[in-house]
Amino acid sequence: MLSCKDLVKRLNSKEQATFFQRAEMRVHLMMCKHCSNYAKHLAYMRTNFKKLFSNIMKSDPEKVKGLEEKVIENFKKAGEQD
């Protein structure tokens, strides 16, 4: 039978589990409160972090516009020097 440690490893693995492995994991999660908690943490993290990052990563359009102009200007200046 799959141990908790193995299950955690498998939950974190990017490899696609086989049909048998998936069934094995489902049975373990059904019976094991701790592992099912762990699995839920991972799921929560996914959705919450998306929200958090989209908040952090919202930039001021004016600032971006200014930055774009600065970059283009620098590029043109460098071209004139060549």
Partner: peptide, 28 residues
């Protein structure tokens, strides 16, 4: 985990975890 691969120190309740992880300051 113990040597047999059982939890020694199990993960906390998901409700509690959700509550904590909703506090953006903490996540940050």
């Amino acid at each position: 985990f113990s040597e047999e691969g059982h939890w020694i120190n199990p993960p906390i309740d998901p409700e509690q975890f959700l509550h904590k992880s909703q506090m953006l300051e903490i996540i940050k």
